Simulated assay, not measured.
Amino acid sequence: MRTISVVPGDGIGPEVIEPALELLAFLGLDVKLDVLDHVNAETYVSTGRALTEADLDRVRGSAATLLGAVGDPRLGDTPYVREVLTTLRVELDLYANYRPIRLWHDKLSPLRDKTKRGIDCVIVRENTEGLYSGAGGNLSAGSSQEVAFDLDVSSYRGVSRILDFAFSVARTSVCVVDKANAVRHGGTLWQRCWREAVERHPHIDTTHLYVDTAAMRLVTDPTAFDVIVTNNSNGDILSDLTAGLAGGLGVAASANLNAATGQGLFEPVHGSAPDIAGTGVANPFAAVLSVALLVEHLGHAREAEAVRAAVAAAIEHDRVTPDLGGSLSTRQAGAAVLAELR
């Protein structure tokens, strides 16, 4: 029996994780849960630390981790979120952020052209380097002469492995997205690694776009893309854009993966959403779809596709929360997916 560690977290995190775990239990897989419900903002407020080495050891010892959300407005200017999210990603070396986006129903798309609405692609985002690596600093901090700098870090190893990962999940094509015409040093490295990766994978179609062009292309014809691979910051922005093209963050799931070790952290993209926490209207579908990614990662592809089909059916029948135009509560929307599975 394999262990799945669960971090419900903050805000709507515990609310959306509850129906996701009910669905996981319904699937009847040979797994047990290790719930770390103390890893949250309250623990950080009272102790000054949210994630201990003992917690990390529990996560390391599990087959996969399901995360609800972390973030609390009381802790805006503290290292809390970084301590949890970045520590998990860096300590487990989860270098590949995998965000599949599918239009579950035509009515969810904001695009006018019906022929261009059917987005079904993956954003593969480098997850441990780039502008989010934390490298940088301030000179003359707090003065009128202050200078702040954040370093966009790229390594040959980091870029090469994220490109290879992108090719490994591609069905038809891979598009690398960068800003090599303006960010010259990192861009040169990315382009060098890209040429080498293309040679290693000659049977996959490839394209290259600058990030501004890619953003424009996504909103004019998102059907043109299969896999987009890019750096940390570009991937952060483009994955939210693609989520908007498919119905919003309420249906956006993600996985943080290491292809070599098999470690995986699965989470809805939406964050803790403190503005709706406790109201009972948070959309659980992103958490449910994250469970689908998790069980697929564990080798249960049939069950994962059944979950996705159940979500699509619930949307088809308007059994959804207010963000998707419905009137159901979080619990009711989760129950709707379970009813479709039954």
Rank of each mutant, 00 (worst) to 15 (best):
residue 342 R to P: 00
residue 106 D to T: 14
residue 178 D to F: 01
residue 332 Q to T: 10
residue 324 L to D: 02
residue 123 I to V: 15
residue 217 R to F: 13
residue 312 A to Y: 05
residue 200 R to P: 02
residue 281 V to E: 07
residue 52 T to A: 10
residue 59 V to D: 00
residue 281 V to R: 08
residue 134 G to C: 11
residue 72 D to R: 04
residue 175 C to E: 09
residue 171 R to G: 08
residue 12 I to A: 05
residue 20 A to S: 14
residue 284 P to K: 06
residue 295 V to N: 01
residue 302 R to W: 10
residue 246 A to F: 04
residue 109 S to R: 06
residue 70 V to A: 10
residue 183 V to Q: 15
residue 107 K to A: 15
residue 24 L to A: 07
residue 281 V to M: 13
residue 158 G to I: 04
residue 23 L to S: 05
residue 217 R to T: 11
residue 12 I to H: 01
residue 105 H to Y: 08
residue 240 D to K: 05
residue 290 S to I: 09
residue 255 A to F: 08
residue 95 Y to Q: 08
residue 244 G to Q: 07
residue 249 L to H: 03
residue 50 A to M: 07
residue 290 S to C: 10
residue 135 A to V: 15
residue 16 V to C: 08
residue 4 I to D: 04
residue 67 L to S: 02
residue 78 T to W: 09
residue 298 L to W: 09
residue 213 T to Q: 14
residue 40 N to V: 11
residue 123 I to S: 01
residue 34 D to R: 08
residue 324 L to E: 02
residue 311 V to I: 09
residue 79 P to H: 09
residue 77 D to G: 01
residue 149 F to N: 06
residue 320 V to L: 07
residue 279 T to A: 07
residue 249 L to T: 07
residue 148 A to P: 03
residue 200 R to Y: 09
residue 99 R to N: 06
residue 41 A to C: 06
residue 209 L to R: 13
residue 287 A to G: 04
